[in-house]
């Protein structure tokens, strides 16, 4: 598919998503114009909305989506982004609280590295189960999401609970651990990490042997195995570990850049939104950045819609679902046409 067709497909899917959302508003008695206008205002209506509403949400979504894509290219499905996000958030909080006296230039990288490692560690179990016992990672990563949520709940009522021991949350991180803010807004330096990660992945996918091998093993595992030159299972395992690490990093940047403390419900479902974003962009790293901004906008706009137009924010999931389905359909018909032409 060429670039113009790709854009057309994305815009068409977005239009379908918002169109269905508007229809739903009409059917359930909300004013669609008021609701969508409030949404636009909340997502792009001001510099503040864009930076502190939309982009701040796009960061964890983009990191998780980039990670999902690495595994997806190798033919593996990581549905556990939510769990790895929480593993990263716990690790970053723990390291951050223990390194409060270190200068930020050392403590921040240490905390983010811990988050990165924790995400990889959290998915190491599914990787092991897949390699040793043949357990599908779709199910094992999914199950570990529930374990991670329980672990966060335990952490904020146990070892990481704030020092007064009243609220289910951790102590606030000292200011030295806060990620630098950009342009005087609430947007934090995690955004730069997301852009950097997308750039590196785009280069790896397009220009390196590793990128080629990933794609080959994902597209035709049997052919890749038979060729004998590509270690398919090792690549999938490595890709899953990187995938988990990215989601863990997202948890780390969220704690160090947005919440400054560990809470339960830190993620409003970023793990699943990340998957949708990766699929929408068909695994192209730079496309993922754009899609993440789009979904960040939808979620920031949804909050504003509830506040200003009285429309439940959850309705935005309908738009997200329709966007995914529209892309699936568009791809389906784009794929079918050449076959029919030759048949």
């Amino acid at each position: 598919m060429n670039r113009a067709a790709g854009w057309l497909r994305a815009v068409g899917a977005l239009a379908a998503g918002l169109g269905v959302l508007a229809l739903f508003f009409v059917a359930s008695g909300y004013d669609p114009v008021v609701a969508l206008a409030a949404m636009w205002q909340g997502a792009f209506g001001s510099w503040f909305a864009l930076m502190s509403g939309t982009l701040i949400r796009a960061v964890p979504i983009a990191l998780i989506a980039l990670g999902f894509t690495v595994a997806y290219r190798a033919g593996a499905l990581n549905i556990g982004g939510e769990g790895q996000f929480y593993a990263g958030a716990i690790a970053a909080t723990w390291v951050g609280l223990n390194l409060g006296r270190w200068p930020g230039a050392l403590a921040i990288p240490a905390a983010l590295a811990a988050a990165f490692a924790a995400g990889a560690l959290w998915i190491a179990v599914p990787v092991l189960l897949r390699r040793r016992f043949g357990v599908q990672e779709v199910i094992s990563t999914l199950l570990l999401n529930f374990v991670a949520e329980a672990l966060v709940s335990y952490a904020v009522q146990g070892p990481l609970q704030e020092s007064q021991g009243i609220y289910p949350q951790s102590d606030a991180l000292p200011a030295s651990l806060h990620l630098p803010l950009l342009f005087g807004t609430r947007l934090h330096a995690g955004a730069l990490l997301a852009v950097l990660a997308a750039g590196v992945l785009a280069w790896v996918f397009a220009r390196t042997r590793l990128g080629f091998e990933l794609r080959a093993s994902g597209l035709g595992p049997r052919a890749a195995v038979v060729s004998g030159r590509i270690p398919v299972e090792k690549l999938a395992a490595g890709a899953l570990l990187v995938s988990g690490a990215f989601a863990g990093l997202a948890g780390g940047t969220e704690v160090l850049g947005v919440s400054y403390a560990l809470y339960p419900n830190l993620s409003p479902g970023y793990g699943f939104t990340g998957i949708a974003v990766a699929l929408l962009a068909r695994g192209a790293p730079l496309g993922i950045l754009a899609s993440a901004v789009l979904f960040g906008a939808l979620e920031a706009g949804a909050g504003a819609m509830q506040r200003d137009a009285g429309v439940p924010a959850v309705a935005v999931y309908v738009a997200e679902a329709v966007i995914i389905l529209a892309v699936l359909l568009a791809d389906r018909f784009a794929l079918r046409r050449p076959e029919e032409a030759t048949a």
């Binding site: 739903f24 359930s28 499905l77 779709v138 699943f272 998957i275 949708a276 699929l279 429309v311 439940p312 959850v314 309705a315 935005v316 999931y317 309908v318 738009a319 997200e320 679902a321 329709v322 995914i324 389905l325 699936l328």
Partner: peptide, 17 residues
């Protein structure tokens, strides 16, 4: 897999609203 995920997402939004 993707379609099922999207259907769950849609149901989440529709039921909530």
């Amino acid at each position: 897999i993707i379609t099922g995920t999207a259907m769950t997402l849609a149901a989440l939004g529709l039921t909530g609203a």
